[in-house]
Every structure is written in structure tokens, then in C-alpha cells.
Design a protein around this nucleic acid. Structure first.
Lengths: 231, 231
DNA sequence: ATAATACACGAACATACGTTCGATGTCAAG
DNA sequence: CTTGACATCGAACGTATGTTCGTGTATTAT
């Protein structure tokens, strides 16, 4: 018995895989056999079928028999193990509504804020948040300046927040301190009528506020993302 | 003329949307009209068609005419603006290969490491990385302890890294300092034969290493993710 | 020379599938 | 009571779609 097929992908395999990724990305559903053929210069549906069967054997795709567009991408050409099945409900976009700087209050979106019309957003995998966390009111802010370093948050970091009406002890919140004209990110504790704002950096001391009225909690931090760029 | 339909979704709309999300999530492709009917107790394909047309008018889905399974989810029942079209190529999983602690070298995966067999991974939106960044060699580590605070990285943070063979000035890297038996995360600079390791925290001083042989660069940091949990 | 396998293809076929049509029922307003 | 809008449904139809079959060529091992 003579196996002449290369261990691995031929040119047509690669072309088909690339097209599958592109089509699904652009359309939200897989292509048909005929659409694959039309876009990979394969004139016969049986040849496309032949290659799809091989891609299935090599665990790049899964197929459902006798189902139109019944192709599920399992692995991309780059080799990434794609969780196609997870994608639809497990990634979402959080609108970036502005910047967080020390000298201004956090720009919390108002209740009539239209999340759908935002031009910039940051994509987040759902699994980064607890399952019970609602995702629809989240907003993102980009940190500007070094004023948040006691929160272990750097210039340029993305902070994902949610508006809250009631803060619980131990939550990481953005607070506006009216007596200092300052926004800060701290762990919040209400202790015997006083507010303790605890930095994330364990080597730093907390702020004690005797008059809780001076503390305006503007939102809770649920995620911080730092994209590394060279300095 | 009398409009009796509620502004918004009826019970059948909601059932259909939920099923669309679930089916696509589990199968990687949308259901057919008949499959929707079978799973929402609607016995007629024309009724399903009737409701799908309304969901399209309300911008929950987009449809392709005369295309089997030509349904694209645009918005979920929760209201999230889902980028169905982006999902297939724009989210991937990075395996979590261990922990990064100060007193041990970084557990960099070996070159025969099987990324596909990892049981735990962290899901990342592709758009969080630069377009040219390759994604297949990335690995994730969970930070253990307070030793990375000068890198603005907290206990419990997830650090996404890649192996590198050659470090460029200004890159954030994990280095093992053999004379100190310590791993640290720093911006790397090679200056006149000496290595300067610059903390991310701008208030802290760099480490100057006269003998570069003592510095083992173990990987480059490309992303840091901090999931907020209460303290 | 022969056999086996891979690769390529067109054609035919049956089923999957979406759309359309006509009919019926309910409800609220006039 | 009538009318119009909305909801519901079965049936029919035509097209979209995947699978199968038979054929041909090229290559390699026996």
C-alpha cells in the first residue's frame, strides 16, 4: 500500500481552510460545498467533498452528514484550536467611553446611553468574567497618566467597569473624592461609618475618609487589561 | 389601523432567539427553519419565517435570502451586540501552563509542547493583540505572590507570554536572575554591554546588571489580565 | 507490465431547505 | 356587526445543497 499524500496539508487543503475561516468570519455561517468550490477554483462538488473529508480526518473541521452548511471549524490554518462553538455567546464588545484620569470624575454612561452605536469597543471573552456577571452595562475606560499606580493600574491600561448603586466591602471601585478633586481606584470598605480606601499595592497605606459624603462611588472595576507595548 | 404587537419581543421571539444562540453555540452553524420550528413548538415553516422576518426588522438577526441556514445573529437576547462575524478568527485560547513565582524560573513550554491537549486555557479576543502578533506559541501563567508589584502585576493576575530567542530593547520580559535566584518582570534594555531592567512602576528604580550572563530572558509579556475579585 | 492509490472531474440524484399562498382564528376599534 | 391587523397553520413549490457514481490520469511499488 502506498500513501503518497503528504503528511499534512496540500495547497488545496490550505485554500479551503482559509476560505472557510474567511467566509464564516464575514458571514456568521459556513459556506456551502458549491461556494467553497467557486472560491477555490474547484469545479466539482465531489472534489470539494473529497478534500473536506480529509480535513475532517485531520481534525481541522467537523461535518454533519446531509446537513446544509454542516461544517464546523475546529482548527484554523494557523493551528489555533478555535472554539467555534463558544464564540457566539462567549465574546462580546464593551464600549470604550473615555479615559480615566486623576483630576476628573469617571465618565459613567448615563442610563440612556446607546451601547450599540459606539464606534470603539474592546472585545472580551465572556469566560474572563464570572458566569453570573451581567455584561450589558459594562463600559471601558482607558487609563491616562501614572496616578493609578497604587491600584496597580498603568497608563494605557483598559479598565472594564460597571455602574453600581450599592457598593459592597472589598469591591474594587472608582471613587471621586470631592475634597481632593480626584478620582482613584481602590478597594472599598465601610467601617463604622468611615470609609477605608485600600490600594491594590499591598505596600501602600489606605486612605481613611471620616466623612463618607465626600466619597462618590462611580463604578466597580471588574477587569483590567494591559496590552504590552514597547517603551 | 391598530398595532397590537408589543414594542419589543413576544414569547415566541424570545424562544427563537434563545434557540438560535444555543444552536449556533453548540454546532458552529445556524439552525434551519425546520430545526427552529421543531425546537420552539412551531409546527409551520411559514410561522418561523414570519417571526424571523420580525427579528430581522428589530435588528436581532440578519438574513440572506434563499440561502440555507442564512441567519446571522447580530444581537443576543441579553442585548449584547454580538460580533458573530468576528468570532471565528478573533477569539482563541491560550493554555495556562503554570504559575509565575519569584523564586522559580518561568515554566516555558518546550518546543514539543502540545498546545491542543491543555485542559485549562484562557480565552482571548484576537483584537487585544497587534495584528502581526502570532498567536500559536502563546502561553499563560498565573501570578502567585506579591513579588511582581514593581511590574504593576498583582497576585492572581494572568500574564500572557511568548517564548523569544532575541529580546529587543523596551520589551517587557520575564527574566531569571541566576545570582538572585529570582524571576522578575521588567522592561529590558541592553546598554553598552550592561543590562538595565526597568520596573513598570515609574516610581521605582531599575536594576543594573553588569554581567548579562546572569540574566536569562525566558519570555516576552504581551498581555496582562486582572480579573477583579473581592478581597 | 500490473496493481494500488491519490487526485481530479462531470453528471445525476435525492433530500434539505426557504419562500409563497391561501385559509382560519382572535382581538380591538369604529 | 364590520373591518383591519396580527397571529397561526398546512401545503405546495422551486431551489439550494450534499452525496454518490463512473471515469480518467499520474505516480509508485511490486
Amino acid at each position: 500500500m502506498m500513501a503518497r499524500r503528504k503528511a499534512g496539508l496540500g495547497e488545496r487543503h490550505k485554500k479551503i481552510l482559509k476560505f472557510l475561516e474567511k467566509f464564516q468570519s464575514e458571514n456568521g455561517f459556513p459556506p456551502s460545498i458549491r461556494e467553497i468550490g467557486e472560491n477555490t477554483k474547484i469545479s466539482s462538488t465531489s472534489v470539494v467533498n473529497y478534500y473536506l473529508n480529509q480535513l475532517e480526518e485531520m481534525n481541522f473541521i467537523e461535518r454533519e452528514s446531509n446537513v446544509s452548511r454542516g461544517i464546523r471549524l475546529v482548527r484554523t490554518l494557523e493551528g489555533n484550536l478555535m472554539q467555534t462553538a463558544k464564540a457566539i455567546t462567549d465574546m462580546f464588545t464593551v464600549p470604550v467611553v473615555g479615559r480615566i484620569v486623576a483630576g476628573e470624575p469617571v465618565p459613567v454612561p448615563s442610563s440612556d446611553f446607546n451601547y450599540y452605536d459606539q464606534e470603539t469597543g474592546i472585545d472580551i471573552a465572556r469566560s474572563l468574567l464570572p458566569p453570573r456577571e451581567k455584561t450589558e452595562d459594562l463600559f471601558a475606560l482607558e487609563v491616562q497618566g501614572d496616578s493609578m499606580i497604587d491600584a496597580m493600574v498603568n497608563d494605557g491600561d483598559i479598565v472594564i467597569m460597571r455602574p453600581i448603586t450599592q457598593v459592597e466591602n472589598g469591591e474594587m471601585v472608582a471613587v471621586w473624592l470631592s475634597d481632593r478633586d480626584e478620582t482613584t481606584l481602590k478597594y472599598f470598605f465601610n467601617e463604622n461609618g468611615k470609609v477605608r480606601l485600600q490600594p491594590a499595592n499591598p505596600t501602600m497605606k489606605p486612605i481613611i475618609i471620616d466623612n463618607p459624603a465626600q466619597v462618590k462611588v462611580q463604578g466597580k472595576v471588574v477587569l483590567v487589561i494591559r496590552r504590552m507595548e514597547n517603551v
